[in-house]
Simulated scan of single mutants.
Amino acid sequence: MKTHVVNLDLPPNERWSFLNAYTKEINELIQCYLNDFTGAEFIFEGITAYKEQFISESYVQEIQSIAAICDFSENEILVANLYYDVLKLYFGCTAFATWNGNEMLHARNLDWHTDQNILSTYSMIFDYQRNGKTVFKSVGWPGFVGVLSGVKPQKFAVTLNAVLSSDTPEIALPISFLLRDILENCESFLEAKTRLENTPIICDYLLLLSGTKSNEKVVIERMPKRTSTRASEEDFIVVTNDYKELQNENTGNSNSILQATSCGRFDTATELLQKHEVVEELDCLEVLQNENVIMGITVQQMVFNVHTGKIKLVCT
């Protein structure tokens, strides 16, 4: 899959100029996201005030440059970038980090309901660079300026999993923008961990964070008002879509396949990692592709080598 360079040395309104070749894809993706906001149109009522308070001028200019090449407004593109924070019920995901004796491998299935398979078809790898050198890489889509899955070579990798709690949502920076900020600016596993544990958030999430040492692998469980970090004494750690540390009165929508299968996917991935030697990217993909781990809504399967920054991406 082609990797596109996002040049951070350019002014924000020029960084995504290569997307001029992907207007069709952007239009289809943004429309897909916005279709799912039916019944949640209220978000548009306060989006301008929210943008002025929480979205940096740099991100605003990036979004404006994308609006200039597609059929949607600046606010519509911003709302599409808020997809997780508003509609996390559509997300699943199984992820794990494993130490192979020399390197940390960080793997995940991105499970996201979508029509016509466009999230899989239009997936891209973005290489964010300064002075011609990689700062971090992410897996995403054209028109999406935030990050849900990313790796900072020789530093850390982070991926987002959905979860539900009974905590009241807060007003804060979108999680996809927070992850991009951390990948762009944090210089160590510990710095990233501290920020992910303490930065105010909008809603619930689970974050798998891995570094370059055998003990640098944690799942950060977040609710708007509560935080707990889960470590592992084994060579691996697994996360799906339920809290293991935080007490949670809301067990989720019983009709949601994401919630209903979370424990089964967690147990299967754990058992596979215990029984089988996982030393390279293909071994990780075998776990992700197990029939009891992969889902019908899985759109991306990826493995990050935290040491080298290499990404193995399979779009299903």
Score class of each variant (00 low, 15 high):
residue 213 K to A: 14
residue 302 M to W: 02
residue 247 Q to N: 00
residue 300 Q to R: 10
residue 19 L to N: 09
residue 229 T to H: 07
residue 111 D to F: 03
residue 248 N to Y: 01
residue 197 E to T: 04
residue 182 I to P: 02
residue 230 R to W: 13
residue 247 Q to H: 01
residue 40 A to Y: 12
residue 28 E to N: 12
residue 154 Q to I: 10
residue 161 N to D: 12
residue 298 T to C: 08
residue 204 D to V: 09
residue 110 L to P: 01
residue 43 I to E: 07
residue 252 G to N: 00
residue 234 E to F: 06
residue 169 P to W: 02
residue 12 P to F: 05
residue 283 D to T: 00
residue 271 E to K: 10
residue 80 A to Y: 05
residue 278 V to E: 06
residue 199 T to K: 10
residue 262 S to I: 02
residue 173 L to R: 13
residue 38 T to C: 01
residue 109 N to V: 07
residue 292 N to D: 15
residue 208 L to W: 11
residue 198 N to W: 14
residue 197 E to A: 03
residue 156 F to P: 00
residue 148 L to K: 08
residue 138 S to N: 11
residue 259 Q to N: 01
residue 40 A to H: 13
residue 281 E to D: 02
residue 150 G to N: 07
residue 291 E to F: 11
residue 31 Q to S: 14
residue 242 D to R: 04
residue 239 V to P: 13
residue 79 V to K: 04
residue 61 Q to F: 01
residue 88 K to G: 04
residue 105 L to F: 07
residue 92 G to F: 00
residue 141 W to Y: 15
residue 140 G to T: 08
residue 178 L to S: 03
residue 165 S to E: 08
residue 25 E to L: 15
residue 309 G to D: 06
residue 69 I to C: 03
residue 62 E to K: 02
residue 206 L to E: 09
residue 149 S to H: 15
residue 74 E to R: 04
residue 268 T to D: 08
residue 120 S to H: 02
residue 174 P to W: 08
residue 4 H to M: 08
residue 231 A to T: 15
residue 314 V to C: 11
residue 22 Y to F: 10
residue 96 F to N: 06
residue 91 F to I: 04
residue 291 E to Q: 14
residue 202 I to Y: 04
residue 118 I to K: 04
residue 141 W to H: 15
residue 249 E to D: 14
residue 129 Q to D: 14
residue 266 F to K: 13
residue 183 L to G: 07
residue 228 S to N: 12
residue 293 V to T: 06
residue 146 G to K: 08
residue 108 R to T: 00
residue 71 D to G: 03
residue 295 M to W: 03
residue 90 Y to T: 07
residue 244 K to G: 13
residue 129 Q to E: 15
residue 98 T to L: 07
residue 201 I to A: 09
residue 47 I to V: 11
residue 20 N to H: 14
residue 201 I to F: 06
residue 146 G to P: 01
residue 25 E to H: 14
residue 231 A to W: 10
residue 9 D to N: 15
residue 87 L to V: 10
residue 171 I to D: 15
residue 158 V to S: 06
residue 251 T to N: 07
